[in-house]
Design a protein around this nucleic acid. Structure first.
Length: 572
RNA sequence: GGCGGUGUAGCUCAGUUGGUUAGAGCAGCGGAAUCAUAAUCCGCGUGUCCGGGGUUCAAGUCCCUGCACCGCCA
């Protein structure tokens, strides 16, 4: 059985994600996981929350809660929303887990033993009032260049001049506003990525079939200017994974934690370890996915992420894995996405612009969003979300083409033959032609799904739905019924089978509707169709079914306009 | 400023290694049908493929250049 390891970029903990975040990693990853499971692969699909770093601390402070408590709550919120969108993670972990603590410390220890870590001193701004070091961007002051009084310590947003926090006039803490600041000497660990440049270069050269965008970003960072830079992997914070050398203390690093970007990708591995523990398995259960010397040599590892995450996944994380000197599984295929824009601008978490996951589920079922987002996923360029486009896409594809097909077939059968698959008649040329059409379409669909060409796959799937309507239109069982009831029975028997066929192949996109279709047809729906003719003969005459409720209610113009107005401003 | 991306029908987008009259969905127009969520099916596109040069027997597709928009980096 083929084995596939799938990870989605892990969402940051400080709030509910918007649809742009969802469509850029978790949702396409879920589609792939569901598809491969349906095709009989053994799949391990891991996601988690990314919990460390200053923004989490500040969000917790703003919420008036201890950061650990805040993260625990937000993890639950994000987990529930993921379930609401039917994201089928095998495990949704936390980067703050004990497993990640151990693994992150383990990797740091290995990297140090390999001579890849160096201690360096630097001078950073310390806030006495906040009792903490301030990252550059949390120091505010007046820009020496343009006089803007809210310039940040890394850059002035007004004149875009690159700044050092010590350049600022009248610097103050962005956290407390305190001006009681001083510059202190502090030591940090640096990962000597420069020493791994050749190894990374070789590894990337060995990858075939990666998108040009992915390899070009990696190559640029490897070779541009002075080449790959060494990277600080520790911070002066309380909330994070304490710096340790494996299980041992790291002299001189007391009170410091690892940088969030060092521990976050390791959570992919740790999350799998969390899965094992949660399910009562021992370590071999997760190591067979991650260690090439312990069973992972035949695993295919696919990552999903937005394009902004590509450098970390092509360079930083591989540097950690390669530098460890241990045979950890590295990514085989990296699928990255562009951005989803909202109605002429960007989705924005900080400005609350656009539709957020909780809001989306509060107005429409998950399948509506899944279908539209996946069929418009920004694979080749940025994509635009507009309420008009969403409405027409959903109404046409789901309500008119698929939903109505189910409705017309089941209702016609009920009125003419009753609520059971009718008997009589035999396939003719039209039915054979339909099988040929569906077989070709299914093959194309599978090819696109295998290649993770999501928009093309969605288009092909839609075409298969249309083919059913075309057949029905040409066969016209409502006309045949008057002159040749057996023939009408055969036609409608085929159409009823088609509902089950559609349910199975559409399930990765619209799992709830697919389940409703299967349930109405009283089918299990397990088993991907190997042979279309056989799949369309599964339901025997006499097999009972129900007419389901309307699968997809249409979005009205009033609803559309109301939502457009509701989400035009900022989030309450 | 450096790097990269994008610019194709009213809208959203496909267009593989350059090769016949540039495609799809939606919207629009016309028709068929009436089983169905007023749903479905069929037919209909005179587009400066952003502008300008160039390479070639042949360019939306390659090269140069200009413009517009968008990112990333410094």
């Amino acid at each position: 059985m083929p084995r596939t390891l799938i990870t989605s970029a892990i969402p940051y903990i400080n709030g509910i994600k918007h649809l742009g975040n969802l469509v850029g990693s978790q949702l396409p990853a879920d589609l792939h996981a569901r598809y491969l499971r349906a095709r009989g692969h053994e799949v391990m699909f891991i996601c988690a929350t990314d919990e460390h770093g200053t923004p989490a601390e500040l969000a917790a402070k703003k919420a008036g809660k201890p950061v650990a408590e805040y993260c625990a709550e937000m993890w639950q919120v994000q987990k529930d929303l993921a379930e609401g969108f039917r994201l089928s993670f095998d495990h949704f972990g936390r980067s703050s887990s004990p497993q990640n603590h151990r693994l992150t410390q383990h990797f740091a220890g290995r990297l140090d033993a390999a001579g890849l870590i160096e201690e360096r001193s630097s001078r950073q701004v310390y806030s006495n009032a906040d009792a903490r070091f301030l990252p550059d961007r949390y120091v505010e002051g007046t820009c020496p260049n343009c006089g803007y009084d809210r310039a940040r310590g890394d850059q002035c947003e007004n004149c875009t001049k690159q700044l050092d926090p010590t350049d600022l006039i009248e610097p103050r803490s962005a956290i407390s506003g305190s001006t009681d600041l001083e510059v202190r000497e502090t030591k940090h660990l640096f990962l000597l990525q420069s020493k791994l440049r050749n190894a990374l270069d070789e590894w990337i050269d060995g990858q075939t079939g990666w998108p040009v965008l992915t390899t070009s970003i990696a190559k640029k960072w490897l070779h541009d200017g002075e080449g790959l830079q060494d990277r600080g992997i520790t911070r002066d914070l309380d909330w994070g994974i304490p710096v340790r050398k494996g299980p041992d203390p790291w002299p001189g690093m007391e009170g410091k934690v690892f940088y969030v970007w060092f521990d976050a990708p390791i959570e992919y591995i740790a999350g799998t370890a969390e899965w094992a523990e949660a399910n009562g398995h021992d370590d071999t259960a997760w190591r067979r996915w991650w260690r090439e010397d312990e069973g992972a040599e035949d695993v295919r590892y696919v990552q999903f992420m937005g394009k902004d995450n590509v450098p970390f996944h092509t360079l930083s994380f591989p540097a950690t894995l390669i530098g460890s000197g241990e045979p950890w599984k590295k990514v085989d295929y990296l699928k990255s996405f562009n951005y989803l824009n909202y109605d002429g601008g960007q989705f924005s978490t900080s400005q609350g612009r656009g539709v957020f996951m909780d809001q989306a589920l509060s107005i429409l079922p998950a399948d509506y969003w899944r279908w539209w987002l996946l069929s418009h996923v920004p694979e080749n360029g940025d994509t635009e979300f507009t309420w008009e486009g969403f409405q027409s896409g959903v109404n046409k594809d789901l309500a008119d083409v698929l939903g109505n097909f189910v409705s017309r077939v089941t209702k016609f059968c009920r009125s003419k033959f009753g609520e059971a698959v009718p008997e009589g008649g035999a396939w003719g040329d039209a039915e054979q032609a339909l099988v040929a059409r569906l077989s070709a379409g299914l093959t194309a669909y599978q090819r696109h799904m295998d290649a993770i060409e999501i928009r093309k796959a969605a288009g092909e799937l839609r075409g298969l739905w249309v083919a059913g309507n075309e057949y029905l239109q040409e066969a016209a069982p409502w006309a045949a019924f008057k002159t040749d009831p057996d023939r009408a029975a055969m036609q409608i028997r085929l159409a009823l089978n088609l509902i089950g066929f559609y349910a199975v192949i559409s399930r990765p996109f619209i799992p709830d509707a697919a389940d409703a279709m299967l349930s109405a047809m009283r089918m299990q729906g397990d088993g991907w169709p190997q042979d279309v003719a056989a799949a369309l003969s599964m339901l025997e005459p006499g097999h009972g079914f129900e007419v389901p409720d309307v699968l997809f209610a249409k979005i009205t113009d009033e609803q559309r306009d109301g939502w457009a107005a509701q989400f035009a401003g900022t989030r309450a």
